[in-house]
Design a protein around this nucleic acid. Sequence first.
DNA 1: CTTGACTCAGGAATGATTATCATATAGTTT
DNA 2: AAACTATATGATAATCATTCCTGAGTCAAG
Lengths: 207, 207
Amino acid sequence: MTHQREIILAELKKSTDHPTADELYERIKRQLPRISLATVYRNLEILSTAGMIRKLEISGRQKRFDWDLREHHHISCLRCQRVDNIELEVQEMLPAQAEDRQGYDISGWRVEFFGLCPKCRKDTNNSQGEETMACAPKGLSDNQRQVLEALAKSKEACGSKDIAAATSLEAKQVSCQITALKKKGFVESPIRCKYTITPEGQGALGE
Amino acid sequence: MTHQREIILAELKKSTDHPTADELYERIKRQLPRISLATVYRNLEILSTAGMIRKLEISGRQKRFDWDLREHHHISCLRCQRVDNIELEVQEMLPAQAEDRQGYDISGWRVEFFGLCPKCRKDTNNSQGEETMACAPKGLSDNQRQVLEALAKSKEACGSKDIAAATSLEAKQVSCQITALKKKGFVESPIRCKYTITPEGQGALGE
DNA sequence: CTTGACTCAGGAATGATTATCATATAGTTT
DNA sequence: AAACTATATGATAATCATTCCTGAGTCAAG
Ligand SMILES: [Mn+2]
Ligand SMILES: [Mn+2]
Ligand SMILES: [Zn+2]
Ligand SMILES: [Zn+2]
């Protein structure tokens, strides 16, 4: 039990959520600024192999860790990724009836619920339109920035050929980038084949 | 619905297992030798977003795909990674009682069983000792190969200092590599601080 | 004091998946 | 059908989470 391992375990026990390795890493760095992410991973692995903590396998996302060794299952929020414990009634304990299903020798099972946590439920009710903002993509590639800047300069909607002329790009490249920019919400098409920059696009340029 | 997308969907529907993206890729290459792995990923994503296939989230492993849209759950083999459908009895359908647990708005759930598939059960019963072989690590690093070759040349057990002399490595490095080689089963220690190569080690060198 | 067994931190590597972009293909409009 | 746009593909780089490898540290036996 090294110093780092103690700190990692203590930090996990302190947490009420079910943190991921890198969430823990961020918290631990305050005490051990020189620790590496690999060390956190390694020690969490060692601790869970030793049965001192549990590694949670939540569908398709980063693994999370739990200091609570009691047999229990989890529910997770589809929006904010929060993970909570869930209590199962006795009649919901499946494995008793599950022995030797389809010829398998069953050694474990897991049930997982998902939905919206109380907080996210409230947020959804209050404001519906803002979601698109929240999940909008971020960065601009070089080409995308060029196209966007050209559009910003133009007073009126213009076609991809105009943009190609204004930049050093070919028409094909422009068309390709406009598609990407439309998807990000930075460009819109008031009429077919003519494009303008959106306020969001202006904002993205400013950054 | 492009040609490649049709092929991908057809190939998935043909399969009775639940293939991963790259398993599908390998099968599809026979018909479309020029297709890229990215295209397979992209179209599987599109098809599952469109609800034409299902993407399976099996704990912590590669995602698998299923053409069967009926609500059903899965059981997977801990040894060979095989995934099968599992039938649940009506009384095992949890969500009816699960509405609104801990304030969550529950939109879904999943149960997942794991164990040994019939085939792997049989294999385990027949031969018990071979498991270590099966899960033994593979490759040798440069340093490890040097150490192992030195040991192979020596008629009798020798210490790390002898090996250090025979190779261009320092004693510490040798000691470190011997530890790794012991763990792999390529080296053993007939007496304290003296080492010999094992038959497995000979085999590893030969490859 | 020396030597070697054991453990560890952290940089580098890996595997799965996604993003980017030039090119190929499919669709529309004239 | 020509001219052009829109979309999909294929090659490749990038990214993200996770794991491996190795030199360095610690400690105890000789
Ligand atoms: Mn928990
Ligand atoms: Mn299935
Ligand atoms: Zn939430
Ligand atoms: Zn199996």
